[in-house]
Design a binder for these strands. Structure first.
Lengths: 160, 160
DNA sequence: TTGTAATTGAATATCATTCTCAATTACATT
DNA sequence: AATGTAATTGAGAATGATATTCAATTACAA
C-alpha cells in the first residue's frame, strides 16, 4: 500500500530539514494514509484515537505544515470554518467545485488550465508553486431543491 | 463618483430583502467606496474612524454579507489570517496571483478561463455563481531575493 | 554513552469572527 | 404626524480553530 511510500518521502523530508522522525509523526502518517479524499485536522486526530494512538491535537497541528512541506498533502478549500486537506500522492492535479448550499466538493481535472497558468506566470515573471481553479455554486442535487424552495439561501439574489 | 451608484444598488438590495437603510450602513458604504483594491474588515473599521463615524466593528462584520449579497464586493483570497475583500463595481472579472513570500496580490484577467469553466459546469450540471483561478508562488521581486537567500522559506523544498 | 537540539502533551493564549441582549431606530401603516 | 413592530445597534462576551508556552522527554549525531 501507499503507506510505505508516504513514510519514505516524509523521512527524507525530515532528514533534509534536520527534523526527527518520531513515533508520533509515524502515527500521524498512518492516520493520513487512511483518510478519504477530503479531511481536516480534527479528522486526523479522530483517526489517531481509533488507532489507539495518544498523539495530541497540538501535535497534529504541528505536523500539518510538515506534511504539506514534504509534498504529501495540500490545502483544498478554505473559506469554510476549517481548512480542508487532501493527499496528493499519486493523484493527478485537479480542481474543485464547491456547493455553497450543501458543502459538497466535486473534483475535476482540466489540462487547459495548466496552459493558461503557464502563460500568465511567464508574462508576469511569477514562479508558480501551486494553482487552483475553484468554482462555487449549486450542485445538481441542490439545484433541484432550489425549485422546491428548500434551500439555504440567505438573501434574495439573482443568478447570472 | 461611484459612491452614489454604490448607495443606489445597496438600497435596492436592502428593500428587496426587507432590510433597513440605516445611518450606519450608509457610513459603511462610504468607507468601502474609499478603499483600495484589497482590504479587510479591520480596514473598513479604521476608515470609519477616520470619517469620525462610530460604527462598531460588530456592525462592520454584520454589514459585510449584505455588501457581498448586494453585489458590491466579493471575497478575494482566503488562506491568510483574515479574509480579504475587493469591490467589484465596474471592475472586470479577474483572478489573483499571490506571492507566498511577501503576500503581494497581482490581479490578472483571463477570458479563456471562463470558457473552460462554463464547459465544466455544464458537464456536471453545476450552477456556478462564482469562480476563481488562484496562483500561488513567488513574485518577480521575491525571486530575486531567493537568489540572495533573503527569503522567508520555512522548509527546504524543491521547485517544480 | 552522551550532549543537545528537537519534540511532546497539557494547558493556555490568540484573535478573527459571531452572538447576546437591552436599548434604539427605520419605516410601513394608520 | 403618531404608532407599532421588526430590524438594527453597540458593548461586551462567546466561539472555536489554530498557535504557543513550558517543563519533561526523546531522537540521533558524534
Amino acid at each position: 500500500m501507499a503507506f510505505a511510500i508516504y513514510e519514505e518521502q516524509f523521512r527524507y523530508f525530515l532528514k533534509r530539514n534536520n527534523l526527527k522522525f518520531t513515533k508520533e509523526r509515524r502515527e500521524v502518517i498512518a492516520a493520513i494514509a487512511i483518510q478519504r479524499n477530503h479531511f481536516n485536522a480534527e479528522d486526523i486526530h479522530q483517526q489517531l484515537k481509533k488507532q489507539k494512538s495518544n498523539v495530541s491535537l497540538a501535535t497534529v497541528y504541528r505536523t500539518i505544515p510538515l506534511l504539506i512541506g514534504s509534498g504529501l498533502m495540500t490545502e483544498t478549500t478554505y473559506g469554510g470554518e476549517r481548512i480542508i486537506y487532501e493527499k496528493i500522492y499519486n493523484k493527478p492535479h485537479h480542481h474543485h467545485m464547491v456547493c455553497i448550499n450543501c458543502g459538497k466538493i466535486i473534483d475535476f481535472t482540466c489540462p487547459d488550465v495548466e496552459i493558461v497558468q503557464n502563460d500568465i506566470c511567464q508574462k508576469n515573471f511569477f514562479l508558480s508553486t501551486e494553482y487552483r481553479l475553484e468554482i462555487k455554486g449549486y450542485c445538481q442535487t441542490c439545484r433541484k431543491k432550489m425549485k422546491n424552495k428548500k434551500m439555504n439561501r440567505t438573501f434574495i439574489q439573482e443568478f447570472k
